[in-house]
């Protein structure tokens, strides 16, 4: 059944081309010129296409993706760099985040307790790595920062669309709440694979719909004497 459905368009094309071709040729033999109606149809259709293309470019130009889109190589590089940095941090060293992660928001909480628990009870469908740095002194302040890597969907950067988590400190517990969910729907248009082959260096089979979901982490700087418990990793900053 599936085979029949996939073959159906080809059969329709064969029937139409053969039918129209034969009819046109026979009618030509009778009159020794192509039927006037056919000329009008082809001419009219061509004019319609020209008008549609002009309208498509002028009145409905679409949202250009050129300025904000990334190539497959760029996305692969971004993803690898994000993974490399997260892995380094999980092993205890947080390198400089320039260009790979952006600090999206910072919080400061005055804190005089000796223990701090990092809660994950409210983290529904949300997990961010938490890295903790012990400050050299007891300044009575917990500094939290949310870092976000680029989030690219099908070559388009959606980092700015992503909401931020909520962080607060209550009774010696630091709570990280999941950000509000967001759903993005969009449509992409391409003139066809023959055009893509020479515009963005995508060959016929490498036209994959590449995305990187964007890693994120929370960096906590806690006073020297505060003992932290929960799901986190201590790191040294480079």
């Amino acid at each position: 059944m599936t085979v029949m459905v996939s073959v159906l368009p080809i059969l329709i094309i064969i029937l139409l081309v053969t039918g129209i071709g034969t009819y046109a040729f026979k009618s030509h033999k009778k009159r020794y010129r192509s039927p006037r109606r056919m000329k009008w149809v082809v001419g009219g259709y061509t004019i319609l296409l020209f008008v549609a293309t002009v309208l498509s470019y002028t009145f409905f130009p679409g949202n250009p993706t050129e300025s904000i889109s990334f190539s497959e190589e760029e996305i692969s590089k971004v993803e690898n760099e994000q993974d490399r940095m997260i892995n380094l941090a999980l092993n205890g060293t947080l390198p400089k985040t320039d260009g790979i992660f952006t600090k999206k928001k910072t919080w400061t909480f005055p804190y005089e307790e000796k223990d701090l628990k990092i809660s994950d009870k409210n983290e529904q469908e949300y997990h961010a790595n938490v890295f903790v740095v012990s400050k050299p002194s007891d300044d009575g302040v917990i500094e939290a920062a949310h870092y976000m890597g680029k989030m690219i969907v099908d070559g388009i950067d959606f980092t700015e669309k992503k909401n931020l988590p909520k962080i607060n400190v209550e009774e010696s517990t630091l709570r990280i709440k999941a950000p509000e969910g967001i759903e993005v729907n969009f449509t992409k248009f391409s003139e066809g694979f023959a055009f893509d082959q020479f515009t963005r260096g995508q060959s016929l089979f490498s036209r994959s719909y590449f995305s990187v979901h964007g890693s994120e982490f929370i960096l906590l700087k806690v006073p020297k004497s505060v003992k932290v418990s929960g799901d986190f990793n201590y790191v040294n900053m480079e």
Binding site: V153, K161, N185, F186
Partner: peptide, 16 residues
């Protein structure tokens, strides 16, 4: 696809 609290749907139109 979705990633945590972010989900997306992309539709494609082309001359293919």
């Amino acid at each position: 696809g979705s990633s945590g609290t972010f989900s997306y749907n992309v539709n494609y139109y082309s001359g293919d």
